[in-house]
Design a binder for these strands. Structure first.
Length: 419
DNA sequence: TCTGGGGTCCTAGGACCC
DNA sequence: TCTGGGGTCCTAGGACCC
């Protein structure tokens, strides 16, 4: 460690999914640039996935927000053109972006599908940072066809806040001396980690801007919000010092799969089928990563009021078998379900450990056989595609045998690329 | 045809032990 | 037997992010 100040860039793709689609379509002969018309990437209403995932600048003018229901967006913007999401394409664009950024520095942290941090410390001087960021921005536009906003500062939090200052296709700085002028006047909910619940409480306390949060008594915040209070007070003052993490991925803590079913589930057998389709994917991912789990959790979203509840269980010996996990899921579901119509079901496993450390107990010998079955099925799916083999009880169910995550070929290129 | 899906971290409360 | 304290583990739920 040296005492020199760090220099961090935060790169944020403008309207990522929509930009990716626009570029792809232009490359394939489209006459219209989606970015110039009221358009949005959105899930299908027919299968009840109808929310806005990304929108163009013209759509934004109508007051349409990301995460909003499509019918609501169309009420605000009647001529809205909606496009179904294509995650395989977005992952390709993501990989291209990361590779391009790595040509400027090897210290690139992938933060999400459309955001990266770059540690430029020691590569350029602070005085050259705007020029360098503009070079990155222009290079992305020229090579990949979409625009980004880049934020520059001495830590990741400030760099991230900076990239939001000017959009699209822009570079902004937010160095510590600029905090009072550039960050403090902003509404408090614009601060990273201040979401709906916290901003509601802060505003009730009379704290409306990031500045008034920064200048209030940290002890009062700690008293009211526990550790959260300390965190947001630090952020409001620009205090943050986590490193740009180079490992391509953090340690996996858990993995889950959930889906909104295109009809309301009202009977146990159908719920079981959905759970199995969810577990198939989770089990595969678990085995693919060479991990076993000790905690299994099932979540249920009510159709009536969209409220969610969950039930979980910790087991003695870690497992990775689809059949075993499915067995626990059925049990959890039976214990939790109150009989009301279900809109959405989820399965999640956590407390993960490497599969190699797992010792099978005497009573679990038959699971050895099950493991071989799991492995054989995984291999067939990897080789011939996810639809090549599935349990016979899906044949007439009208449900997808593998729900979510890996259910369509969309996710497959991503997965195999890790191999 | 009414609002997705993938994560992480924290906290409160209960059970149980010494 | 009726009043504690300290600690760990487990579960449910809520907060935030993209």
């Amino acid at each position: 460690m040296n005492n020199e100040e760090k220099l961090i860039f935060h790169v944020d793709v403008n309207s990522a999914f929509l930009s990716f689609e626009a570029v792809y379509r232009l490359q394939h002969g489209a006459k219209v640039d989606l970015r110039d018309i009221p358009s949005a990437v959105a899930g299908s209403q027919a299968t009840r996935h109808g929310i806005i995932l990304a929108k163009s600048a013209p759509t934004k003018k109508y007051g349409v927000k990301t995460g909003e229901a499509v019918w609501e967006a169309k009420r605000k913007c009647p001529h809205l053109v909606t496009i179904p999401p294509n995650y395989a394409l977005y992952m390709c664009c993501h990989h291209s972006l990361v590779e391009l950024l790595k040509s400027f520095t090897d210290k690139v942290q992938v933060f999400s599908i459309d955001e990266c941090f770059m540690d430029m410390s020691g590569i350029i001087e602070e005085s050259q940072s705007i020029e360098a960021a503009n070079k990155v921005r222009e290079c992305i536009k020229k090579e990949l066809g979409f625009t980004v906003s880049i934020g520059i500062s001495t830590n990741k939090l400030l760099a991230k806040m900076a990239s939001d200052l000017k959009k699209p296709d822009a570079v902004s700085t937010l160095f510590p001396p600029e905090i009072p002028e550039k960050m403090w006047p902003l509404p408090v909910e614009e601060l990273y980690m201040v979401g709906r619940a916290t901003s509601y409480k802060l505003r009730k306390m009379g704290i409306d801007t990031i500045g008034s949060l920064a200048n209030c008594d940290p002890e009062l915040l700690k008293y009211k919000f526990k550790s959260w209070g300390e965190l947001i007070w630090n952020y409001a003052n620009g205090i943050e010092d986590s490193p740009v993490s180079l490992s391509s991925r953090e340690v996996i803590k858990g993995m889950g799969n959930s889906t909104t079913i295109h009809f309301d589930v009202e009977d146990k057998e159908t719920a079981y089928q959905v759970l199995l389709s969810l577990v198939e994917t989770v089990g595969m991912r678990l085995r693919f990563e060479g991990l076993c789990c000790r905690v299994i959790s099932v979540s249920i979203k009510r159709a009536e009021d969209l409220t969610l509840y969950s039930h979980q269980l910790k087991i003695q010996s870690p497992i990775d078998s689809t059949t075993a996990i499915y067995g626990y899921c059925k049990q959890l579901f039976d214990e939790a379900w109150k009989g009301e119509p279900i809109r959405h079901l989820g399965v999640r496993v956590s407390d993960l450990s490497p599969a190699s450390n797992v010792q099978l107990s005497m009573f679990e010998r038959d699971w050895e056989k099950q493991k071989k079955v799991d492995r054989a099925v995984d291999q067939i799916r990897m080789k011939f595609g996810p639809g090549s083999i599935f349990r016979s009880n899906f044949l007439w169910s009208g449900l997808a045998p593998l729900e979510g995550g890996l259910s369509d070929d969309a996710s497959y290129p991503v997965m195999t690329s890790i191999l």
